[in-house]
Write a protein that binds this DNA or RNA. Sequence first.
DNA 1: GCAATGACGCTCT
DNA 2: CAGAGCGCCATTG
Length: 112
Amino acid sequence: MTRVARRARIYAVVRRIPRGRVATYGQIAALAGLRGQARLVGYALAALDVDSDVPWHRVVNARGAISLPADGHSALMQRARLVAEGIAFRDGRISLDRWQWAGPRASRRPIE
DNA sequence: GCAATGACGCTCT
DNA sequence: CAGAGCGCCATTG
């Protein structure tokens, strides 16, 4: 599997995250067939342009926090976009129990 | 090619 | 719940 192919798969998964929901790097990696390689997801997102069509801001780490230098412009924008989608921050973190995306399967076939 | 680095995560203290 | 340790692996110097 080539670099570009991996990145394409990662972006494809990220694009499926619904508005108002978030996913973790590890979750994206697993859904992209790259289990255990969360770092690659971060690496792929780092290569994106801030105004990309890929909703990179909906990806946070396993603790529900933003994995970017807290003082950076990108981090502020990510936080602003998430808040704009109705997601609340508590002590710099998001409640994953509340806003984590259940995944593509659940999206196609909701539990209720 | 070796070593360091980094948008990560899981386990154990 | 915060930290440390360790695993992972593409990129870079």
